Amino acid sequence: MGIETSDDAAIYKITDEIAMIQTVDFFTPIVDDPYMFGQIAAANSLSDVWAMGGEPAVALNIVGFPNCLDPSILGDILAGGADKVKEAGAVLVGGHSVQDDEPKYGLCVSGFVHPDKIFKNFGCRPGDALLLTKQIGSGVVNTAIKAEMASASAIEEAERVMASLNKKAKQVVEKYDVSACTDITGFGLLGHCVEMASASDVTFEIQVRDVAYFADAIDYAKMGLVPAGTYKNKGYSIGKVETGSVEEHYLDLLYDPQTSGGLLISVPSASVQDMMRDFAQAGMDTEVSVIGRVSTKSDKLIRLF
């Protein structure tokens, strides 16, 4: 696997039966609780392995931490990460730390996949349905949290969903003939849709109101509680999107940078009903939504309705 289509992780073929997936990610705290921060950062780092169709095996901690903070805070961050790695079925084997002015945490993760079963972020076929396995709007909700305007229910949902592993979703997806798959992170839903549609030489038709959003996220977006990354994402790809009459607050949410977001899957429409049944039976604690369809390429990569 190369970098031509901005895929989620590197793939190194070892044998005809085994390929290694390699990925790394880390960031600064987005919640106040250090244990929860560790869980979210680890879930985010592990996600790329499932987005490529594999299973994580080995993880290494990456840590930046200030000397002025109590070391117990770092202990809580690492405990949160370790618990998520264990939940993922992988092994944590150490890591590396440096002194830094601001806390940073994440993982370098190695996983494995059969070379013939890799999920790629290209290959979408006209007629496919587009499914999303987590609700979006975490950046908007986190902005509301920083402004001390978020409700308790919105905070609980955001933390729960961001800390949720994409493991169960991947285990459902792999049973079907998946055309393409990626996970939604910093470029926002539309940014990743643009990448996938461009690499597949197709156009995505997105039904904006069919997308699952975090509780209160629409209200917060209407209030202007939008992170700076949203505007950077818009500037990158807005010319490739036909927005139609979609309201600005929906655009803000669709471009909202996500932390530990869900999987975006392109799959034959005939499989959707069975997949949604399997998602429901998997006991996931996130919302799965059918957000649109793939059509033949037009003058825009994305059309919003």
Rank of each mutant, 00 (worst) to 15 (best):
K167D: 04
C124R: 11
V161N: 09
V109T: 12
A154L: 10
A147C: 11
G111E: 00
M149W: 12
K117Y: 05
S151L: 00
G137W: 00
V173W: 01
G123F: 02
V172I: 02
V141N: 07
C124V: 10
V98H: 14
F112A: 09
V98R: 15
I155H: 00
I155Y: 03
A150D: 12
L131E: 00
A154S: 15
K104L: 00
G137K: 06
A152H: 14
A154W: 09
E148I: 12
N142Q: 15
E157T: 11
L131I: 11
A150G: 14
K104R: 10
R125S: 10
G139C: 12
I118P: 01
K104D: 00
V172T: 08
E156G: 15
A154R: 15
N121A: 08
L165C: 10
E148M: 09
S164D: 06
A154D: 10
D100M: 11
Y105S: 14
V141Y: 03
A154P: 10
H114E: 02
Q135F: 06
K175Y: 01
C124T: 09
T133G: 05
N121D: 06
D100W: 14
I136K: 12
K168V: 05
K167M: 08
Y176I: 01
N166G: 11
P115E: 03
S153N: 11
L107D: 01
E102W: 08
K117P: 02
P115Q: 07
M162D: 12
A150V: 13
F112E: 02
E174L: 04
Q171C: 05
L107T: 11
E148P: 03
H96T: 15
E156L: 07
E148F: 11
E174G: 06
I118Y: 04
I145V: 13
S138M: 05
G123C: 01
Y105N: 14
I155K: 07
S151F: 01
L132A: 05
M162Y: 12
Q99T: 13
F112L: 07
Q135E: 12
V98D: 14
A169M: 04
L132W: 09
V141F: 07
I136H: 11
E156H: 10
I155Q: 11
Q99F: 08
A144L: 02
T133N: 06
G106W: 02
T143F: 01
T143I: 03
A158D: 13
P126F: 00
N142Y: 12
Q99E: 05
K120D: 03
T133I: 03
D128G: 07
A163I: 14
Y105V: 13
F119P: 06
G106C: 01
C108Y: 14
K168L: 03
T143K: 13
F112M: 04
A152M: 15
K134T: 08
I155T: 12
D100Y: 12
E148G: 11
S151I: 10
I136M: 12
E159S: 15
P103A: 05
A147G: 10
S138K: 15
Y105D: 14
E102S: 15
A158G: 13
E159W: 14
